[in-house]
């Protein structure tokens, strides 16, 4: 949208509002009897979005129901990671939401890149891994162990080969009848 701030109906009187400094209550400039919450625009420096497909120009097909296009439009730079790089992605392609190359800065081929979340048509979410992450995230020391095991000093290939031992294999096996 490109606007510096936006009026929002809601949030007045809540502790969410009180705990944030990016929202204030302001008078409607066209109606002095009305006040609304006004929220500061959120403009991330970089957004990273994972797509099913992308082409080399940056056109991409993203999951259908998310607000990824809005995030892309709000961000200064947009990196699309994709399960597949194809010749051409167009607005007529089915199975996802189209995002135009005009909103995209760079494209990266990253199969499995949504893990432990899933990608429709490619793989299911890895519920076991999400549970492992949630257990780790509840405790500082456990979370450090998680990072040491999967993230710090690990390459993408090492990560993918570790997690592929788990439910991703089961997912493929379960789909074997099709």
């Amino acid at each position: 949208m490109g606007v510096p701030y936006i009026p929002v109906r809601g949030l007045a009187g809540t502790d969410v509002f009180k705990r944030r400094d990016d929202m204030i209550i302001a008078t409607n400039p066209f109606d002095p009897t009305e006040e609304t919450v006004v929220a500061l625009a959120q403009n991330p420096n970089v957004a990273i979005l994972h797509a099913q497909k992308a082409d080399r120009d940056g056109n991409a097909l993203l999951r259908k129901h998310g607000e990824d296009v809005m995030v892309a439009q709000a961000s200064h730079r947009v990196i699309v990671t994709a399960e597949e790089i194809v010749d051409k992605v167009t607005a007529d392609d089915e199975g996802g939401q189209f995002i135009s190359a005009i909103n995209v800065t760079a494209v990266v081929h990253a199969p499995g890149g949504a893990h432990p979340a899933g990608v429709p048509g490619y793989y299911e979410q890895d519920a076991d891994h999400i549970r492992e992450y949630m257990r780790a995230a509840s405790d500082e020391a456990l979370f450090r162990q998680y990072l040491a095991k999967y993230v710090i000093g690990k390459t993408e290939e090492e990560y993918q080969s570790m997690v592929r031992q788990g439910s991703r294999v089961e997912v493929h096996a379960a789909g074997g009848g099709g």
Binding site: R9, A12, T14, V16, E35, T36
Partner: peptide, 15 residues
Amino acid sequence: DFVSGAMVTPPSIKR
């Protein structure tokens, strides 16, 4: 303990 929603707000908040 935490106000997620305030069902009473000043009349200037139109709702």
